[in-house]
Design a protein around this nucleic acid. Structure first.
Length: 494
RNA sequence: GGUCGCGUGGCCGAGUGGCUAGGCAGAGGUCUGCAAAACCUUGUACGGCGGUUCGAAUCCGCCCGUGACCUCCA
């Protein structure tokens, strides 16, 4: 019996705003599509949230024994800067500013993103498709939508006919919006002459002569619209109907609403069965934004090089901090909160190490390991309740420490099971890693220097027994000490 | 203005109609040459006002505060 048959996983489905029992379309296979980054800048805190959230989902589903295909795209074309002006592509704009080929920008920031995700121990997805690599698929889908009567060509661009679509389907079923309200609330937009209605959105956009990211199409040279890539690529790799679609809450409207409309218009299927949305990140209670001056990249966080940061925070601290909040809640970053998370993580990892030192006895200790197991899974089954799972881990940590200090005991069976569960929960599911301090190398240097300084003092006192012992023990670790007239040098032997 | 969400002890953050969440910080103690760690003990918590109920922080209404989306955004 697979684990997924024993565990009833409930996930919050944005489609009806309720927690629903997760049942895959074709078990044991699970298909997930998550909206990835638009690669035009360094990865920041906002990128980490969905990445960690859906990494947790991915890890848990795999742990339960599902065979998961996890598709997370890279958007390297198609996000318009603004609908009101020239509609300049973000990546194109960045390329202009930095005098680069657009694909250079894309490659550079894709690499940066991957580095940051690896540091956060976010597993790479099964497939990471790029929008620019799926122009044909997007054109085909746009054409299908035209043929089905839900899109029209206008002056070299193709627009989705939202009003027409809404006659037979409900545009707004995901975000809870009502088309009439949107129409009455419509703002005066530029280029509206091309669109039949203000709410229509582009499937294909004509490229102005200055636009260097362009592809040939039957409608002329242009580039794909904002939302089409995800519909086209999810269909290609997961099929017309798949299990879970994820992304940030900010994408709920219009992005995901448009995806549903496109999929229905093209194939008749509304694509995903479960829609999951992670909530946003705030900094000191404020939305993170470039204009607010509180925009923190992951590298700045890891190195502490931002004026708002009192110190650096390791990738694992960031990951742990995010997991201590439920993915559906906003999470506020502050030095105080991060510092608390860091200490908590150290405590947890300390208990993990303490586990190795415990000596089992014949008597069973007070901790109910079976209940710990049940409660851990129960927490995860309840819409990925990582904060509750972590709370249970802290309870276990307390028991481990109490036992180590001689105030409780543990049987061999308990110990074995606890070790196994700690491994499963901490490493497999939460995806935490041993605390790898980025300063470890620096620390080693300082430590050896300190030890050799002390050895110098010892030598002055002619305690050669101790000084020789320091040298030979260091040598046993591969550190070769070379005495100089007035000091020392040392090196690490390969 | 419209839509949706949130408001929990010094800080972060779960939860839920009646039973200790947890972490960090604080206080007292044990241990200790000192310190740290660990362990033990400790906190009038649930925005305000009404209502439903035997009982609400948990359900309903109103108000206040706050945030997200409505334009690109993770």
């Amino acid at each position: 019996m697979s684990k997924y048959q024993e565990n009833r996983l409930f996930i919050h489905n944005t489609l009806n705003r309720k927690k629903e029992l997760f049942t895959p379309l074709t078990p044991p296979h699970v298909g997930i599509y998550v909206c990835g980054p638009t690669v035009y800048g360094d990865p920041h805190l906002g990128h980490a949230r969905p990445a960690v959230t859906f990494d947790l989902l991915y890890r848990y589903l795999k742990h339960l024994g599902y065979k998961v295909r996890y598709v997370r795209n890279i958007t390297d074309v198609g996000h318009l800067e603004s609908d009101a002006d020239e509609g300049e592509d973000k990546i194109l704009k960045k390329a202009r500013l930095e005098q680069l080929e657009p694909m250079e920008v894309v490659q550079h920031y894709s690499n940066r993103y991957h580095e940051a995700m690896a540091a956060l121990n976010v597993l790479p997805p099964s497939i990471e498709p790029r929008a620019s690599g799926h122009i044909i698929e997007q054109q085909v889908m746009a054409q299908q939508i035209i043929e089905n009567g839900y899109a029209y060509e206008s002056n070299g661009s193709v627009y989705f006919d939202v009003l027409k679509y809404n006659e037979q389907h409900r545009y707004g079923k995901l975000s809870g919006r009502v088309l009439e309200d949107m129409l009455s609330d419509a703002r005066q937009l530029g280029r509206q002459d091309e669109k039949r209605n203000s709410v229509d959105f582009a499937l294909w956009k004509r490229a102005e002569p200055s636009h260097i990211m362009r592809w040939a199409s039957k409608w002329g040279e242009g580039f794909p619209g904002w939302h089409l890539e995800c519909s086209a690529m999810s269909k290609k790799y997961l099929g017309e109907k798949f299990d879970i679609h994820g992304g940030g809450m900010d994408l709920l409207f219009p992005h995901h609403e448009c995806e549903i409309a496109q999929s229905v218009a093209a194939t008749g299927s509304d694509a995903a069965r479960y829609w999951m949305h992670n909530n946003m990140v705030t900094i000191n209670g404020q939305k993170m934004g470039k204009s607010l001056g509180n925009f923190i990249t992951l590298e700045e966080l890891f190195t502490g090089s931002h004026s708002l940061l009192e110190k650096s925070y390791s990738p694992m601290t960031i990951r742990f901090f995010m997991l201590q909040a439920h993915y559906g809640s906003t999470i506020d970053f502050s030095n105080e909160a991060l510092g608390a998370a860091e200490k908590g993580l150290i405590r947890l990892m300390g208990a993990l190490k303490a586990l190795e030192k415990l000596e089992p006895e014949d008597t069973t200790g007070s901790f109910d390991v079976d209940a710990f197991e049940r409660n851990g899974y129960k927490a995860m089954n309840d819409d990925l309740g990582s904060p509750v799972l972590i709370a249970h881990l802290f309870d276990a940590a307390k028991y481990i420490n109490t036992t180590l200090s001689g105030n409780d005991m543990i049987s061999a069976a308990q110990l074995e099971k606890l070790k196994s569960l700690f491994g499963v929960f901490i490493f497999d599911i939460l995806g935490l890693q041993e605390f790898e301090d980025k300063d470890t190398a620096d620390l080693t240097e300082k430590l050896v220097d300190l030890l050799l300084d002390i050895r110098l003092e010892v030598k002055k006192k002619k305690d050669f027994e101790l000084s020789d012992r320091i040298r030979s023990e260091l040598a046993s670790f591969g550190i070769i000490v070379k005495d100089k007239k007035d000091g020392f040098e040392w090196e690490l032997k390969k």
